[in-house]
Design a protein around this nucleic acid. Structure first.
Lengths: 213, 213
DNA sequence: TTCTGTACATACCGACGGTACGTACCTTCA
DNA sequence: TGAAGGTACGTACCGTCGGTATGTACAGAA
C-alpha cells in the first residue's frame, strides 16, 4: 500500500517532517505516534524501524528546528568585529528566530521536559547558547576585569535567560515588532551600563563585593 | 478499607501531599494517578471527587509550592526602603527559593507545558512575577527616565528571565552557594551599570535610540 | 423513617506507547 | 543462478494510563 517502498531516506524525512509539524501545532504529549505515521502514510513499524521511540523522533525534530535557528543567528553575527555591535546583531537575530512557532513549542516549551534538563543543556550548550557565550566573552572578557570562566559563564546564563524570556514575550505579543524593539532597547541599555562601567574602570564584580551593603 | 472516612479535608490534603512529592520526584508525565491514590491510601474515586482530573491536582500542588516560594520572597523584601537594596534582598531570596526541588520541577519545568503558557502566565503574573515587577518599577520607574508601562514590563520580563535561568544554573551547580554568589555579583553589576546611567542622566532607552549604530 | 447530598469505592472503556513477529525486496557471493 | 542474509517496512497485539459510569455507606434534614 505504501508507495514509498525501497527508499528509506525519504520515509525518514517524511516522518520528521510530519512530526515537526504536529509537535509544533499540538505539543509533544498531544501528538500521537498514530497521527505521525498516518501523516507520513506509513505504519508504526516504519517509525520504530527508524527511531527508538517517541522521544527519539522528537529529538530529530528538535535538532532540525534548532539547527535552523542557530544557523540564522550565526549568519547574522558573523562579519561583525565590534563585540557590542555583534551582540546587538545576535540579539536581533535571536528575537527573530524565537518567533518561529516551531522553535517556541519544540525547543523552548517541550524541549526541557521531554529531553530532560540534562540532555537539553547538552544540546543548547553546543548551539544557541554557544553563540551567546562567544558574544559575552568577546564583549566582557576583553576588558581589564579579570573575570574567570565561572563568572563569564554566569553572565552568559543570565543573558541567555533574559533573551529567552524576552523572546517568549515578543512571540506572544500582539505587536511582535514593537515588542522586539523594546527588548532591544532594554538590553541595549543594560549593555550600555556595563560598557560605561568598563570604560570607567570600575572594579570587577567579585563575589561578595556587591552582595553586602 | 480506607480508614479516612468522614473527614474529607484530610483526604484532599493527603492527595496533594503525595501528588506534590511524586510530581517533584518523577515529573508530571511520569507520575500516574494510580501512584498518587495508592500513596494517599485511597482510590481514584476519591481523587476524582475532589479534583476534576490530573491537571487539576497538579495545579493544586503547583499553587502550594509557588505560594510557599512567593511568601518567602515577599518576607525577604519587605522592610527595605531603598529599592536597590530591596532588589538585592529579593534576588537572594529568589535564588534560595529556586533551589527547592519542588519549585524547580513543578513550577519551572512542568508548569508551563502542563498548564499551558496562558494559565502559567496568569498565575506567575500574580505571584513571583509580581514581586519582581514591583521591585523593577520602584528601582527604574522613580528616576527621571520616562519609561512607559510597556517598557517597564519589558525590563521586568528580562530580569525575571535572567533570574529564572540563573536560578536553574544555581540549582544544578555542584556548589550552589558559590554559584548563587556569582549570580548576585553579576546581576548586581548589571544593576550598578543601570544605576550609573541613571545618575548621569543618560536619556531614556526609547525604542530605536540604541538599536542603530 | 424517609430523603438527599457528600465522600468515597469498584468496574470498566478507549487511547496510546511500545513490542513481537511476519514479510516483501534487495544485495551478496558461492 | 540461487540460496542466504539484511533492510524496510506492515500487522497484530499487550500493558498502562487517564477518565467515566455506577454503586454505596453514612450523616444530617424533614
Amino acid at each position: 500500500m505504501a508507495r514509498r517502498q525501497r527508499w528509506p531516506d525519504s520515509t525518514k524525512r517524511a516522518l520528521v517532517d510530519v512530526a515537526e509539524r504536529l509537535f509544533t501545532e499540538h505539543g509533544y504529549s498531544a501528538t500521537s505516534l498514530d497521527a505521525i505515521v498516518a501523516g507520513a502514510d506509513v505504519t508504526k513499524g516504519a517509525l520504530y524501524h527508524h527511531f527508538s521511540g517517541k522521544q527519539a523522533i522528537f529529538e530529530a525534530a528538535f535538532e532540525r528546528v534548532e539547527s535552523r535557528a542557530t544557523a540564522g543567528i550565526a549568519r547574522a553575527t558573523e562579519g561583525h568585529r565590534d563585540p557590542w555591535l555583534k551582540a546587538q546583531a545576535g540579539l536581533r537575530a535571536f528575537l527573530g528566530a524565537v518567533q518561529e512557532p516551531g522553535y517556541r513549542q519544540i525547543v523552548i516549551s517541550d524541549g526541557p521536559s521531554v529531553l530532560g534538563h540534562e540532555r537539553y543543556r547538552e544540546r543548547e550548550e553546543r548551539s544557541t547558547y554557544a553563540i551567546v557565550d562567544e558574544i559575552v566573552r568577546s564583549a566582557l572578557g576583553g576588558g581589564d576585569w579579570d573575570l574567570d570562566d565561572a563568572m563569564l559563564d554566569t553572565f552568559t546564563r543570565i543573558f541567555f535567560g533574559a533573551m529567552s524570556a524576552a523572546g517568549g514575550a515578543v512571540a506572544v505579543s500582539e505587536d511582535p515588532a514593537a515588542a522586539a524593539l523594546r527588548v532591544e532597547a532594554a538590553i541595549g541599555f543594560v549593555l550600555a551600563g556595563l560598557q560605561r562601567l568598563l570604560e570607567e574602570g570600575v572594579g570587577s564584580p567579585d563575589p561578595g563585593a556587591t552582595s553586602r551593603t
